[in-house]
Design a protein around this nucleic acid. Sequence first.
DNA 1: TTGTACGCGTTATCAT
DNA 2: ATGATAACGCGTACAA
Lengths: 371, 371
Amino acid sequence: MATKLTIDDIARLAGVSKATVSRAMNGKPDVDPATRERILSIVEKEGFKPSATAVGLAGRSHLISVLIPSMASETYIFDILRGVADVVTEAGYELVLYSVNENAQDNNRNTVIDRILTSKLSAALLAILPGQLGGHIAQLYKPDFPIVMIDDSEPPSDKMPWVGVRNSEGARKAVFHLYSLGHRRIAHVTGPLQRLCSRERLEGYRSALADLGLEYDPALVVSGEFSAPSGHAAALPLFNLPADQRPTAIFAANDFMAYGIIDAAHSYHLRIPEDIALIGFDDTSSSVHMQPSLTTVRQPFYELGQTGCQLLFSLLEQSRSGRFQAYGKSFSSFATMHAKDFKQVAAMPAHIYLDTELMVRKSCGADLPVR
Amino acid sequence: MATKLTIDDIARLAGVSKATVSRAMNGKPDVDPATRERILSIVEKEGFKPSATAVGLAGRSHLISVLIPSMASETYIFDILRGVADVVTEAGYELVLYSVNENAQDNNRNTVIDRILTSKLSAALLAILPGQLGGHIAQLYKPDFPIVMIDDSEPPSDKMPWVGVRNSEGARKAVFHLYSLGHRRIAHVTGPLQRLCSRERLEGYRSALADLGLEYDPALVVSGEFSAPSGHAAALPLFNLPADQRPTAIFAANDFMAYGIIDAAHSYHLRIPEDIALIGFDDTSSSVHMQPSLTTVRQPFYELGQTGCQLLFSLLEQSRSGRFQAYGKSFSSFATMHAKDFKQVAAMPAHIYLDTELMVRKSCGADLPVR
DNA sequence: TTGTACGCGTTATCAT
DNA sequence: ATGATAACGCGTACAA
């Protein structure tokens, strides 16, 4: 059924005014418990859901805008998005998706962002914009419109709430693991160094070498572009080194470059992992299917989305003054989350770092005898 | 800037009433050209954008709801979504994303769908729901709320608008190609047969065999579940056949199963493509990176999303009575699309089939001498 | 051709 | 504790 039931209908059925119905549903304190109970049961029984548009017009939007890069071949965006979507849905909110063309001029970008701000459609913004795109969001910081950034962009300012991954730690896990397997000449193929995550992984690689007492050899560090072809290209100078200077292991700054390295190894008749051990970064969904299956540093993309979204809700909670109640029992899931998590959520720090996990598979040669 | 500019402000600046502003912006016929020009230029100059919420409340929602499965490990959903997002954005609409849990009870599903319908937030619905999920959408057909389904679900009724792929033709391309390379014992690993796309691919396989004068051998047809492990498992009975009955080529109903088959071949010390040629289906983004790179039947996922969305807009166009104009020059992109494409778009058929494309790579052995 | 007035569903404010 | 009323911003009959 579910037709054009309005708040007036409920008010009439309950014999009260619509104001009271609204109060009851939003958990305002000043409602007689008996009245509230009666109203909520009618709401429940009739299956009344407030019109999202009307709520929005009245300044209580239940929409969250989410920005993603449109060209993203990088499939992990989807995993982040799923995390976001699940939390948004759980909270009884809706998700409005905008895709931003990375190649477009600033103009285009700002158009989208303008639209989000001026349409006043949504209550907050979650930006999943890797690389340079993110910087442009920084200016948007307004006290009444919560924004959270997810991903590897540099936190543009101390004020901008931000969720990311401990890239440096992740890189260290990879290098330590290779060391434990007996490797001493460990190469690194970096990502584009204008991106913070690339620099952090490089930094982790270097600090791990230092901690292990290994010398940093510039000949063993090649930079790529996060794509498979660039990984292939980056592998060539390493493979062309004299056998006694050639690395016995490579840590690639992402999985796609590792794919390219596998391909290059084939051309050179080098076996992975017997001749060269390999570890990637990301745990892209296909990495487990590669031949050999790719050992990699897993980023918790789904959790990244969840966490970013929770942070956003906590900011929303702060900007609205402590309301945010559940819509009767029909939204009990949100009520639960609220009761359980909110005190601590409301105290969430502005910058959150999540941990990576080393996924040990075949390409690192963990099941081979230590060299 | 872009602040709280309302239609009243524009009206005041133009010295007319808000009604006239509204008419001018929506391309209503009964506005003096000079007045319209003046109003639009002011709109342009001030950068006025109507509040999306208010527009929605007034019954002119610019939101499109999109349903996707939440558990989708299947990354192609994201490609479809990008196609949808780009068309939606191009049209000056916004996209509201809902993820549906496949495993949840009907209850859960209907909750989401109910929310979409009763919140009256969006003007139309695009459902990207593979498999069984799709069936539930069928009942939703209402004349005033356009719905389009994308994907492999069976078109639930003649009335339900639907966009899909020519699965049978795609399968035929694979089999014909293998035949041209000299293969005569061609096996097929099917998807789950309760899904229409699996049955269609099987049907294409059989019809191609028939056309080529090859006998259909039930021993060469094994069913899988669209996952890599199921592909691995399905390969075993084929590899265990006596050498003279063993297939020389396998056509897998999707790429993930092909990955499993590659893995199984390793265990059996069978080389791909030298001993067994392999073709998959989908062109999942990682297939090009496999070792060997996977020859596969490409589905145009991005285009699927675009087309589905265009179909949806054409239905929207039908249900609103011939309006749908551009918002002055700021939305010129949509105006362009409108002028260029709409006549034909408005005549789009309810069911649309897109073509597949055979991507020839290494795994089929196309660069080997014909057997 | 243009203006007036109402409706959409909710929340805030001020009364009671 | 509850009610009445005024926004919120736009589209659109209906009137002029």
